[in-house]
Nucleic acid binder design. Structure first.
Lengths: 177, 177
DNA sequence: CGGGCAAAGTTATAGTGGATAACCAATTGG
DNA sequence: CCAATTGGTTATCCACTATAACTTTGCCCG
């Protein structure tokens, strides 16, 4: 996350629009002494990519702390969910929808396999491929993880201002993707 | 670049709400042959963090391609903008508002300094600190970069559906941060 | 049918970003 | 004046991603 990352791009030539109209430096706060004047961040905070990055980092951060005990990272979780909903698929298929290079996906699945959550069953239809399945333990574990996640998700929705706001957000994010 | 990454957290116990109600496997498409059935991704795509991540990667990707010729990465750009709007600040201050560890900020600024865009002037008020400024070349470079970025930003706003949608997005992102 | 090409999985490797620890010089507060 | 803190720096380490190369297997097509 922090993701990230790489900070975001920025806005236009002169001043960003969320920059408070910048006429002249507002008179310094009460004691014009050396009071740590705040920085002008308007030009960066007006950037869509920048804000997107910060929000994403923040949400992932939260995910990491919530799932710390379960030793689950976001990528792990998404893999488990995807396998659960699409049992028997091959590695390449799961990797692709997640946007993970199949070479890197190997390590990911191996980790889950070693923890006894996932099984890689050699497909006899195609001897090159591995069909991915959750083990019984994996199912149980995921059920718990899903519950934990749902709590977090509801918390996020509440912060957004409700279900409608969530839909709006997802729609806007889609337009950027 | 792959999106994924670390995918996001997910939804609740049974099925995500954007998952089409999952009753039973809908009859396979026309030719029930081996037609690469699409994966069920509802449970992942309903996750706020996941969508946030995908959108952020997408936007950054675009930034990278647009700024490829200028050899500017998002972090570089944000640093230049911040220094331009807050000349004379010390490294620690700029680093902090960007959420960059001061140790890692060193490399960042050094790169910009070597390119002749930024100057680190030893402060005589505090002999430990470096006051950051843009060079004349840095100002000129940034003016160009800002113009390039503004074009990209407008393109993003258009995709969102206008200025109002942009404000809505930024507001929602703020609530998550 | 047989040869060539593509796909699935894997390994190895490199690059990048962020985090931590340790250190020096300088400053600040008692 | 001394202790604690701050600013900058270096050196490392870890996580994530990308690329290349290789093996096995499947598929197409002349």
């Amino acid at each position: 996350m922090a993701p990230v990352l790489e900070a975001g791009p920025v806005r236009v030539s002169n001043t960003g629009m969320n920059v408070p109209m910048r006429r002249e430096p507002p008179p310094p706060p009460s004691p014009s002494r050396e009071i740590e004047a705040a920085l002008r961040t308007g030009a960066t905070t007006g950037i869509i990519g920048y804000r997107l990055r910060r929000a994403q980092l923040s949400v992932f951060q939260k995910f990491l702390s919530v799932f710390d005990e379960l030793k689950l990272r976001p990528a792990d979780y998404s893999v488990l969910v995807l396998i659960a909903d699409n049992p028997g698929r091959k590695q390449t298929e799961i990797a692709e929808v997640l946007g993970v290079k199949r070479a890197n996906f190997v390590t990911l699945v191996h980790g889950l396999e070693e923890r006894g959550l996932v099984e890689r069953i050699p497909s006899h239809a195609d001897k090159r491929a591995n069909a991915l399945h959750l083990t019984a333990a994996g199912e149980a574990f995921l059920a718990h993880a899903r519950a934990v996640h749902e709590t977090m998700e509801q918390e996020l929705i509440a912060r957004l201002g409700g279900e409608k706001a969530r839909k709006t957000l997802l729609d806007l994010l889609d337009r950027l993707t």
